[in-house]
């Protein structure tokens, strides 16, 4: 029994006949061979493309509008316990131990201040000082007489900054002794 070698080109062996159909068979053979070669080249090209040495990744970096505000320094106490020698009245006291910080990448923002105590016995005022350059504009000193928001810093545009918060408290003799408690809130908001 003769074992037949099976290969992928068996069907493309050049024909040996020399009969009348030999020319046609030869043309058919060449066409098949050319097609086979073309397929091989295209397959190789596709393989090389798939084995590229670069790859890509799409990345979108979005920055949303954000506004941050914070305080350094906790609760504070202002105590009026001295007499003004010339005025014969209790001497005002000042506290500048608290720092306000803010960051905003938005435009036309401002920082307001408000107290929750709208019926205080003694005067309490607040003002920014030692402002970061270019981070905003200090508003006039605010005297708390209600619980509404008052401008504290205006003109905040795409900036990060800080300032010292100066609290001043004063008392008339007629007000006697006692205490007020305020919860002071700073807010960054649209102008």
């Amino acid at each position: 029994m003769k074992l037949r070698r099976i290969t992928g080109t068996d069907s493309l062996q050049p024909p040996n006949e020399t009969t009348g159909g030999a020319m046609k068979t030869q043309i058919l053979y060449i066409a098949r061979k050319t097609t086979k070669t073309l397929v091989a080249v295209l397959t190789m090209a596709a393989g090389l493309y798939a084995q590229g040495s670069s790859t890509q990744q799409s990345l979108i970096l979005r920055v949303m509008e954000l506004n941050k505000i914070g305080l350094i320094g906790g609760s504070l106490k202002l105590t009026i316990d001295k007499l003004h020698a010339e005025l014969f009245a209790p001497a005002p006291v000042v506290n500048a131990n608290t720092t306000l910080l803010w960051t905003s990448n938005g435009e036309n923002k401002k920082i307001t201040v408000a107290s929750n105590n709208n019926n205080s016995r003694y005067a309490l005022r607040v003002a920014p000082q030692e402002m970061s350059p270019g981070a905003g504009v200090a508003a006039p000193e605010v005297s708390f007489s209600d619980n509404k928001n008052h401008d504290f810093i205006v003109g905040v545009n795409r900036s990060a900054g800080k300032c010292v918060i100066k609290f001043s408290a004063a008392a008339d003799v007629a007000k006697g002794i006692g205490s007020d408690t305020h919860v002071v809130t700073f807010t960054i908001t649209s102008s």
């Binding site: 670069s54 990345l59 990448n105 795409r158």
Partner: peptide, 15 residues
């Protein structure tokens, strides 16, 4: 913060 808001669309290529 001074750069404001917006978005960048990158196509990052590693080679």
């Amino acid at each position: 913060a001074s750069q404001g808001t917006g978005a960048d669309a990158h196509t990052v290529t590693f080679t």
